[in-house]
Simulated assay, not measured.
Amino acid sequence: METRAAAQEATTMDGTVALNTARTMTAVVQEGQGSADVLQIRQIPVPQLRDDQLLVRVHAASVNAFDYGLVRAGWLVTVFAKLLGRRVRLQGVRGVDLSGTVEAVGRNVTAFRPGDDVMGVGTGSWAEYASATERGLVSKPTNISYVEAAAVGNAGVTALQAVRDHGKVRAGQRVLVYGAGGGVGTFTVQIAKAFGGHVTAVTSTRNIEVVRSLAPDALLDYTRDDITKRPERYDVVFDVAGTRPLGELLRVLAPGGRVVMVGAAKGGAGSLVARLVAGLIRARVLRQPILICTASFRHEDLAVLKDLIESGKVRPAIDRTFSLAEVREAVRYTMDGQGRAKVVITIA
């Protein structure tokens, strides 16, 4: 087996490529469930590659709701994953989003070569090295940093699918983003504007300046401004925060408008399930204009985000960075609801 790599290699019996099998790396391994304390810094072997995989030297990786969901209540994430026909590993190296440099490629990989800078998703990105496939990566735009690039993967794709596929935002439509200060929210504001929407962003006092930097057409502080008492009506309402009663969000719709549920409050598993059930009942039983966005990663969408970033229409918003050794603190910060925009782990 021929593998183009920047490291020594050996072919294993099962067809994988072992890159200098004596090499180890530092990684964050989940050992249990419940709190950030189950995350352990370990020395483990560098991933072995299949013919269709790449090895990425990770420079940065972001923290997503999916990640801390596995830490806090992995059983619930597993249930939802099975309902969606997906598999989830509760133990092992955490992290999905990444940016970095290609270290090695399997012989069937043609889109990238060692030394290329990339961003996207991989397996076990809270580590010095992670494996990925061509479908999970695009070239990193040169106009953003590794830290910014690491924030794009899941949050960016989720926001894009919410705006384009579920919200069907068109030029001139009035759009409300309720919960604009988080990872998905900051992307949603920018993408809706890129699609020509007139965007009103709603967030907390703490997040006002972060959201203001995104240049929404209107900016509201939900602690002072009650959207139900304002005269504006909206063609699309994106419920990212998951904290406002759905009935109130429906009241601010223009005729023919729709509510897109694209996030959930950072509460316990019970509140998440209750919110989803309420949305399903209103949508399917009461026939109310509510759509639930369950994003699915697609390479084509990552490419669209790359184009939007390169054109200057979208730029990832970063709250804080933590080192790999500080990953427990990063997860606690995010799980406790302190995080604004995206929280990123810097690695190399």
Rank of each mutant, 00 (worst) to 15 (best):
Y178A: 13
G197T: 13
V138L: 01
A155F: 01
H198R: 14
F187Y: 05
A194Q: 07
V184W: 11
S131H: 03
R170G: 08
I191Y: 05
G172R: 11
V177D: 06
L137S: 02
N154C: 14
S131A: 14
T186F: 07
K168D: 10
A171W: 13
T142Q: 13
R170E: 15
G185P: 01
G120A: 12
G179Q: 03
K140N: 11
L137N: 00
R135W: 15
R135N: 15
V147W: 00
S131R: 08
K140M: 15
V169E: 04
T123G: 09
A194I: 06
V189P: 00
G124C: 07
E148M: 12
G182S: 12
G185S: 04
G156V: 13
T142S: 13
I144W: 12
S145T: 07
V147Q: 02
Y129N: 05
T200Y: 06
R174S: 14
A127N: 10
G153C: 08
A159D: 05
G185Q: 04
Q161S: 13
E134M: 00
T200S: 14
A132L: 08
G179R: 01
I144Y: 10
H198Q: 15
V184Q: 08
Q161M: 14
A180K: 05
A201I: 04
G196F: 01
I144M: 13
T188P: 11
G124V: 01
T142C: 09
N143L: 09
V184K: 00
S131P: 09
G179K: 02
E128I: 04
G136A: 03
V152N: 03
L137M: 05
W126Y: 14
S125W: 14
V121I: 15
G183W: 00
V157C: 14
V152P: 01
V138H: 00
A127F: 13
V175D: 01
Y178N: 14
G196D: 05
K193T: 09
K168V: 08
G167K: 06
Q161T: 14
A127I: 14
N143D: 15
T158P: 03
V121P: 06
